[in-house]
Nucleic acid binder design. Structure first.
Length: 151
DNA sequence: GCCAACGTTGGC
DNA sequence: GCCAACGTTGGC
């Protein structure tokens, strides 16, 4: 079982939206490094839900991977903001996972708090200028995040 | 293959 | 709203 961290802007899709939906397809990732992390995810992996572009940014909940290696359908939809004209159903370029809601943390971990607790080497999201939207989390860091966030 | 221009992310 | 960081594009 591996830990991951996945970002979403709450105005686009929030932990509350995931709680309501139960399961969702994590679509719209258009960065090769992030996609490569998505395709290396396994069933039952745990992912921290990170709210970006909000006040305060930070980790707000937990989800689990329920379906791996899913073709992201938004890449084929011309009217979709994530449309990729260079992709085709015969040769899809963008893959993702389906995630399930597990919990909303009683003690969300703000970016500020994360910066005080972890260094940039052990937790990528606190790296300066970090723009990656899907990233791995070290097992021991994941364990600590869980115990901090659950209080 | 280099690199300037451009677009996007995301903290502040 | 600003702007630093940085990924991508495209001319050469």
């Amino acid at each position: 079982m591996a830990y991951w961290l996945m970002k979403s802007e709450p105005t686009v899709y929030s932990i509350t939206d995931l709680q309501r939906d139960g399961i969702t397809l994590w679509d719209g990732v258009r960065n090769y490094q992030a996609r490569n992390f998505l395709t290396s995810m396994a069933l039952e992996d745990l992912a921290f839900f990170y709210h970006s572009n909000t006040q305060p940014p930070g980790i707000v909940g937990l989800m689990k991977v329920v379906d791996t290696n899913q073709v992201d359908p938004s890449q084929f939809e011309a009217a979709n903001p994530y449309y990729d004209p260079k992709s085709s159903p015969a040769q899809p370029r963008w893959y993702t996972v389906r995630v399930g809601y597990l919990e909303t943390f009683p003690h969300p971990l703000s970016l500020d708090q994360l910066k005080q607790t972890f260094n940039p080497e052990e937790l990528w999201v606190v790296r300066r200028g970090n723009r990656l939207s899907v990233m791995p989390v070290l097992p021991e860091v994941g364990d600590r995040l869980l115990s901090l966030a659950r209080g």
